[in-house]
Amino acid sequence: MTRRLKLMTSLSTIAAVSALSLAGCGGEGEGEGAEGESEGTPVAASGESEGLSAESEGEGESEGGEGESEGAVASGDPATDDIEYLRLLGLVRGHLVAFYELYQGGETTMALMHVKHPESELYASLAPAIAARGLSGFADELTTLANAAEVGGEVTEPYSAVITQLNSHAPGSSVAQQLLSISQIVRTAGDEFDIGVEDNGSISNAHEYQDAYGFLIASREILSGISTTDINAVEAIEMAQEQIALALGVFESLTASETEGEASTLYGAAARIEIAARGLM
């Protein structure tokens, strides 16, 4: 194990304490489903906060998925801040993951709520940044996917087309920046899980619970696409994958009515991934 990753591991206690603190602040009215909610600054090692956006989803989302404004408020400008830009791309991907798995499982009504969200809300937040970066965007691909789903058609090909476009729009960021964005996506998953699951383990908001799952799968896929030969970066990526695997362990099926999992597991994963990212800086 490299010296740097040993440092990350030694800081895991800090991450765990921070995660429990975050979980204690959760609950109804917070996270992606709370109107005007501000997520705050992610946990940072050694009190650092540079380079992280104090994101705010502020969706105002009800169980029916209406009134969303996810990603509307954030401290970083995605036009120039790669971490914030990658975060928004990851959230789009997460919603699409939830959509695809639900749709393929025959849960069309629930699936449609997820595919309409990134098309109408998240893409609106991304569009100015995409234009500022001189990119073509993927609005047409999102629309094609949503239209196919609405008529009950085959969605595998249009889904793959959107994911390909998402990948092509990612900037050539450092591994540290990519891990920082993933830590924020995983933290958002914790917020979503905290909203969707009651203290007794019953799932009161399936949409938020499904969002949390989608964000974690999207993070895992993004990690798998990072290529590096730096041993420190490789170990940091492997550790992040392990943390996401642990976080995914709190989920039952996407249509479950209850779970024994807790949001603190996701918050802990987010904190440890952030520590790993900062160890590369």
Rank of each mutant, 00 (worst) to 15 (best):
L91G: 01
A277Y: 11
S69H: 12
L246H: 06
A245Y: 09
A269F: 08
H95A: 01
G40V: 12
L5C: 03
D81Q: 00
I222W: 11
L112A: 01
S168G: 06
L5V: 13
A161G: 03
L248C: 07
V162W: 05
I163P: 04
S183L: 03
T164A: 14
T109G: 02
A45F: 08
A206H: 10
L20K: 13
T255N: 02
R272P: 03
A131I: 14
E101F: 06
A189H: 07
S38P: 03
Q165R: 15
S69P: 02
H95Q: 09
A245V: 13
A79H: 00
Y159A: 01
S219T: 08
G40S: 08
F138K: 00
A189G: 11
D81A: 00
A44E: 08
L112P: 08
G29V: 11
V234Y: 03
L280A: 09
A98V: 05
E55H: 11
G31S: 11
V115Y: 05
T228R: 02
S227P: 04
G26E: 09
Q241R: 15
H117D: 08
S120P: 01
S69D: 11
E262N: 14
Q241M: 09
S18E: 11
T9L: 12
A233F: 00
S202Y: 01
V115S: 04
G76R: 00
Y159Q: 04
T2F: 04
S21I: 10
V92I: 11
S253P: 06
A132P: 11
G268E: 08
E274C: 08
E192S: 15
A240F: 00
A212S: 15
R87L: 09
A127Y: 12
A212C: 08
I195E: 13
A176S: 15
L179V: 05
E221R: 07
G31F: 09
R87Y: 14
A34W: 08
D199E: 15
I275P: 08
A271K: 01
E48W: 10
G172V: 09
I226P: 07
D191T: 07
A23I: 06
E274M: 15
D211G: 06
I217Q: 10
Q165H: 04
F138W: 02
I163L: 14
I14R: 05
G24V: 02
A240D: 06
G90N: 07
F193L: 06
V250M: 00
E252N: 15
T188I: 09
T265Q: 07
L280I: 12
G67H: 13
I222E: 06
Y267L: 08
A139K: 15
E242T: 15
A276R: 06
G190Y: 02
H207Q: 11
Q210G: 04
G261Y: 06
E84A: 02
E262R: 15
V234A: 05
V155C: 07
E32H: 12
E274Y: 12
S75C: 00
G94Q: 02
M239H: 11
V234C: 03
M239C: 03
N200I: 01
Y100F: 12
L280P: 13
S160C: 02
P118W: 00
G67V: 06
A270D: 08
M281C: 06
G51R: 13
T265E: 09
M239F: 13
D77K: 00
V234Q: 15
G27C: 05
S253Y: 09
A72F: 11
V151Q: 14
Q241D: 11
T259E: 03
